[in-house]
């Protein structure tokens, strides 16, 4: 009788171990897939930032401004908000 109990407990223990291993394997796969997904999303995010950088490049902005007939003001017309007005003699 005692031997049967030992075999039963041993069997249960082995079953638990194997289930735990299967679960660990599944979780491992899920984690790996998530990690891969994160890496990919990071790469895509970086690529989108790169595209934004391209659209924000001075070349693109200047051309867009020219298409809209915008003209850059002469530096002397710039008003500095600390009290120095344009064209004002500083020295």
């Amino acid at each position: 009788m005692r031997a049967i109990y030992i075999i039963l407990i041993g069997g249960l223990f082995l079953l638990f171990i194997s289930m735990e291993r299967v679960q660990r394997q599944k979780t491992g796969h899920r984690v790996a897939a998530l990690m891969e997904d994160i890496e990919f999303k990071k790469a895509r995010n970086q690529y989108l930032r790169y595209r934004l950088g391209v659209y924000n490049s001075p070349d693109k902005i200047v051309n867009a401004a020219l298409e809209d007939k915008m003209i850059v003001t002469e530096p002397r017309n710039i008003v500095v908000l600390e009290g120095q007005s344009a064209g004002q003699r500083q020295d």
Binding site: V72, T73, E74, P75, R76, I78, V80, Q84, A86, G87, Q88, R89, Q90, D91
Partner: peptide, 14 residues
Amino acid sequence: AKFLNIYSVPANKE
């Protein structure tokens, strides 16, 4: 002129 513009350097001549 571009650099004076970019760095908002105040004019210093009438």
